[in-house]
Amino acid sequence: MLQVQQLSIQQTSQTLIQNLSFKVQPGEILTLMGASGVGKSTLLAWMIGALPAAFTATGQCLLNQQRIDILPTEQRRVGILFQDDLLFPHLSVGANLAFALPATIKELDRQQRIDTALEQAGLVGFAKRDPNSLSGGQRARVSVLRALLAEPQALLLDEPFSRLDAKLRQQFRSFVFAQITQMKIPAVLVTHDLADAPNKDCIIQL
């Protein structure tokens, strides 16, 4: 379970977020909505431990009953998807995924896990490809696979659908949501499109 308790974020004298608290159960997707500039992305940045120096925050973030807001980014086990896919351009698609896999999975297994993941995403045989040779939708799917192969305990989605066209968007959305449900991890989605929200009961307006 992912919990945020009594979070306030300030930028110099201006308060962006005041006393925000929420809980997200495993397999559940919480949608955060609001106009540009209300601090949605800043909130996600705080949750992964990358709050820009201009902001100050008070409050706690717990993942599976453990405080993570005091941990460095790499120990939080919180994955994130941005608007841009941010695939590492110097690595092949397969290497991008291998980079995310834990070291406990060895040699042959690694290859297998990557192939399976690519298969799930309808990208069979893409492991050797250069990310630049992929279409936008394909790249987006690879970036989801990459985030999930690292076995995160929670996933944050920072408007990951906004760059895709309507049809792709629909497909990609259901792909992501299916993955989250399958992994049974809590997720937070930031968007300003109501259509993106998977569960209309689980929306916080900022």
């Binding site: 992964i48 431990g49 460095p72 980014t73 790499e74 919180v78 994130i80 941005f82 590492f88 834990p102």
Partner: peptide, 11 residues
């Protein structure tokens, strides 16, 4: 941002 992504992957 790429560096940040790598960090969220545990590096």
């Amino acid at each position: 941002k790429q560096s940040l992504v790598a960090q969220t992957l545990g590096y």
